[in-house]
């Protein structure tokens, strides 16, 4: 144990906190897709993590078309052009994931709306299997390099703590996306309809809300956020593979549960907590125990505070 602590001290508590918050904002972005869908139709969308993976694959393909996989071009192109191309990649991945998520809902989940919950969950697992297999066909079994476009230079003068352009990029994309979502759900008519449907679908329908349309919109929004997260993740980690949806999806779902499933600010808080806890447990318990720690937290939260950190205490959910 002492040497572990020494190692963590050398790297610095602050560094793990920074990395944790950066990873956490990524998890939060994926978690929003889970939490919104669960909030409205009470479906644990097991396929969401794999949707995220497919989004990353689309981004790789899209950025390759734009010529960004060629390091010489990427190095010589002016920064504003790169920024535009990355923005294009994000938009493409977001659109693609939104469309795919809506299609999955239309084809698979919607016919099961009246069935027992287990039926829909098992279907979601089926969709997840199909997505993973599509990913395998698309890019093969080995990890794919993501174009390395964002410089790793330290923005801080200090030697110990590093804050790179990559970190800034992650927060710079995820924070506005989450803010936009919050504003959308709070102030637009469609957002209002979403909140109404989440509260009580029957009552919402009686008030003239087109519930099917609201559910589609929810899947579209959740999918789009997963697409955005996928590109940011690729730029940050620099490699993507067909199995990456599983762990990231589970972390994100843990984040959603931690914050109180169905609760949008909760998912963000949960994501940040999961990111920080994951990094800190890597530092203090060793990298191999990091995943176990995250899931142990999931269990502890569910046992002692099933409504999550920010969730209201409701009886029926427990």
């Amino acid at each position: 144990m002492p040497e572990l602590f020494a190692q963590a001290e050398a790297a610095g508590f602050g560094q793990f906190l920074v990395t944790g918050l950066v990873m956490g904002s990524l998890y939060a972005l994926i978690a929003l897709g889970y939490t919104m869908v669960y909030g409205i139709i009470e479906l644990i969308n097991f396929a969401h993590g794999d949707l995220f993976m497919l989004g990353a694959f689309l981004a790789v393909t899209h950025l390759a078309w734009s010529g960004l996989t060629d390091p010489a071009f990427a190095a010589s192109a002016p920064a504003y052009l790169l920024a535009w191309m990355v923005a294009g990649g994000i938009a493409a991945a977001a659109l693609f994931c939104a469309a795919l998520n809506v299609a999955a809902d239309r084809v698979v989940y919607r016919p099961l709306r009246a069935s027992p919950k287990l039926t829909a969950i098992v279907s979601a697992v089926g969709v997840s299997f199909v997505f993973v297999n599509l990913g395998l066909f698309w890019k093969g079994p080995s990890p794919v390099k993501f174009p390395d476009l964002i410089p790793d230079t330290n923005l801080l003068a200090s030697d110990g703590l590093r804050l790179t352009w990559k970190d800034v990029m992650v927060v710079g994309v995820t924070a506005p996306a989450m803010l936009a979502l919050t504003l959308f759900v709070r102030y637009t008519p469609l957002g209002k309809a979403m909140r109404a449907t989440a509260q009580n679908p029957t009552a919402a329908r009686l008030m003239g809300v087109d519930v099917d349309r609201v559910v589609s919109a929810t899947f579209a929004l959740g999918g789009a956020l997963a697409g955005v997260a996928a590109v940011v993740y690729g730029l940050y980690i620099k490699a993507v593979d067909f199995q990456m949806g599983f762990q990231n999806g589970l972390y994100a779902f843990t984040a959603a549960v931690l914050g109180g499933v169905g609760n949008i600010p909760g998912a963000v808080v949960g994501g940040l907590v999961i990111g920080v806890v994951g990094e800190l447990s890597k530092a203090y318990l060793g990298a191999k125990w990091s995943e176990a720690t995250v899931f142990a937290i999931l269990i502890v939260i569910l046992v002692f505070r099933p409504a999550g950190l920010l969730g209201a205490r409701t009886r029926e959910k427990v």
């Binding site: 089926g126 969709v127 299997f129 199909v130 997505f131 297999n133 395998l136």
Partner: peptide, 10 residues
């Protein structure tokens, strides 16, 4: 394999 499993489940 997964494609077939998934489709069968769905």
């Amino acid at each position: 394999k997964l494609m077939i499993f998934g489709t069968v489940l769905i």
